[in-house]
Write a protein that binds this DNA or RNA. Structure first.
Length: 291
DNA sequence: ATTGAGACCTGTCGGC
DNA sequence: TGCCGACAGGTCTCAA
């Protein structure tokens, strides 16, 4: 029996780290299971993930009803009837598993799942009879609670740039955010204050889609006053395109990410995908068609 | 102010 | 075969 899972695993070969499309996938997995359901019980198996759980974590969750499951950047947000909001980040390796509770206790049905229960850090038992389990081998994930009215000012969210799939994100916004930056454009795309939710994979993919070299200076997509150049238009559109494509087709393979040495997927191009390191991270691109 | 490096963490993989 | 170091990467923190 295979439980539905998300964020990492079977739907995402190549072990991709969850970025915006994957987090949105998890949101769509959790929303129907949690929305309108009350947290009946909470099992916290570990004192902390990347940071300690907030004080009163269990009491602030148990007995309250989830009113909505949304997403901001790579954060999952579960609004509670108490007015508080549960904030979850999947980190590098986090994912959720949803299954029907076997009984009143937290019977994880060991042996019946192919997931390693060793890293099941938090389990929510919902009034709908479903168990929602957070599993994160590397423990780079995060769970926190924001009090009523304090979500927007929460440390994790307050400095985030525009949502790439919202009207706030366009060539003008991208150019403005980049126009004083000396870092390479691909590195700028990873900065969550520039655009929220893009990670290492889709930063490379977006540069490829826009035919822009990842090594190009970020400021080069804008004029000296911060107005968008054509490259800003292309890149903003490419960011939206690669994210929407990944959301629509989670199993699609990447065009350049982790494809060093393979031919450029652009038919009209005879280049070979290269891997370089920028700001300590792998970047994949085609040196022939990306300028 | 902007940028980079180090830390966090552990499963996986290449090399000896 | 087995051990071991390198590597992967999102975000925070600290330093230049």
């Amino acid at each position: 029996m295979r439980h539905s899972r998300a964020g990492r695993g079977s739907q995402y070969d190549s072990g991709a780290v969850p970025e915006l499309p994957e987090v949105d996938f998890v949101r769509r997995l959790l929303a129907p299971v949690m929305t309108g359901a009350r947290v009946e019980a909470l099992l916290v198996r570990r004192a902390k993930l990347r940071i300690p759980f907030p004080t009163g974590f269990e009491e602030r969750l148990v007995g309250h009803t989830v009113t909505a499951v949304t997403r901001r950047a790579k954060y999952l947000l579960a609004a509670l009837s108490s007015g508080e909001t549960l904030i979850v980040h999947l980190g590098m390796s986090g994912w959720f598993r949803v299954e029907r509770a076997a009984g009143p206790e937290f019977d994880a049905e060991p042996g019946e799942t192919d997931d390693d229960p060793k890293h099941d850090h938090v389990v929510f038992r919902m009034s709908s009879g479903m168990l929602v389990t957070f599993n994160d081998p590397r423990r780079f994930g995060l769970m926190d609670l924001a009090a009523r009215g304090e979500l927007a000012s929460h440390k994790a969210l307050r400095d985030l740039g525009p949502e790439p799939l919202s009207p706030e994100f366009d060539a003008t916004a991208l150019a403005r955010a980049c126009h004083r930056r000396k870092t390479p454009i691909k590195v700028a795309l990873l900065d969550q204050t520039v655009v929220a939710g893009v990670g290492n994979i889709y930063a490379s993919e977006a540069c490829f889609e826009a035919r822009i070299s990842p090594k190009r200076k970020a400021s080069a997509i804008a004029t000296s006053t911060g107005a968008p150049r054509p490259q800003a238009m292309a890149l903003a559109a490419a960011v939206v395109k690669v994210l929407e494509r990944a959301i629509a087709k989670p199993t699609a393979r990447f065009k350049v990410y982790e494809r060093a040495g393979t031919p450029c997927p652009r038919r009209t191009c005879d280049g070979t995908i290269r891997r370089i390191v920028q700001a300590g991270r792998s970047t994949f691109y085609c040196p022939v068609c990306q300028r």
